[in-house]
C-alpha cells in the first residue's frame, strides 16, 4: 500500500466517523442511523480486498468505539466492522465485483451487523438491547447502506484508479 492510498483510507475513515456522529445521527431519519462508516469499510473491502477491508474495519470500529458519546463495549464495533470488511473483500474477489452481487452483499452484511451487535450485546448482558427494535433497525440499516454504497463504492474505485492506474483492479 502506498502512502497515497494510506492517506485516502485515513481521511475516509475519520471523515466518515465525524460525519456519522455529528450529522447523520442527528437528521432524525426513521430507524437506524445511516451507517456511512460501515459503507466506507465495505468499499475498502470491495475495492482493495479482504486484508485491507478487515484492517480498515478494525481501525474505523475502534474510532467509533472511542469517539464520544459512544457508550458500547470498547472493541465491539471494531470486531463487527473487521468481519464486515473481510467478508465484503472475499465476496468481491470471488465474484469479480458484479454490481448487483455487491449491493446484495452490502444489504446482507448490514442486517448481519445489526443482528450481530444485538446478539453479542445480549450475550454480554447489555440491558439496553431491545429485540423488538431489531427488525426495523436491520431493514432501515440495509436500505440506507445500499443507497450510500451506490455512491461510495464508485467514488473509492475512481480515487484508487486516479492514484495508481496500474495497481487497481
Amino acid at each position: 500500500m502506498t502512502l497515497g492510498r494510506l492517506l485516502v483510507s485515513v481521511l475516509a475513515v475519520v471523515g466518515a466517523v465525524l460525519l456519522q456522529v455529528t450529522l447523520l445521527s442527528r437528521l432524525g431519519l426513521p430507524g437506524a442511523t445511516p451507517d456511512l462508516v460501515l459503507v466506507v469499510v465495505l468499499a475498502f473491502g470491495a475495492v482493495r480486498g479482504p486484508t485491507t477491508g478487515a484492517g480498515v474495519g478494525f481501525a474505523a470500529g475502534l474510532l467509533l468505539d472511542l469517539i464520544p458519546p459512544s457508550m458500547g463495549y470498547f472493541g465491539l464495533t471494531a470486531l463487527l466492522l473487521a468481519v464486515a470488511g473481510y467478508l465484503m473483500g472475499v465476496v468481491a474477489e470471488r465474484t469479480g465485483g458484479v454490481v448487483a452481487i455487491s449491493l446484495i452483499t452490502v444489504a446482507l452484511i448490514s442486517v448481519g451487523i445489526v443482528v450481530g451487535r444485538a446478539a453479542i450485546g445480549t450475550l454480554l448482558g447489555d440491558p439496553r438491547v431491545s429485540w423488538g427494535e431489531v427488525p426495523g433497525l436491520a431493514l432501515t440499516e440495509a436500505v440506507y447502506a445500499v443507497i450510500l454504497a451506490a455512491l461510495v463504492f464508485p467514488a473509492l474505485a475512481a480515487i484508487d484508479r486516479f492514484l495508481e492506474p496500474r495497481l487497481s483492479m
Binding site: Q20, V21, T22, S25, A32, T33, I67, P68, V129
Partner: peptide
C-alpha cells in the same frame, strides 16, 4: 450545545 449523537443501532441514547 449538542455536538454529537450516538447511532441508534447501538441502542444507547447518548449525546456529546
Amino acid at each position: 450545545q449538542v455536538i454529537g449523537i450516538g447511532s441508534s443501532q447501538g441502542f444507547a441514547r447518548t449525546v456529546t
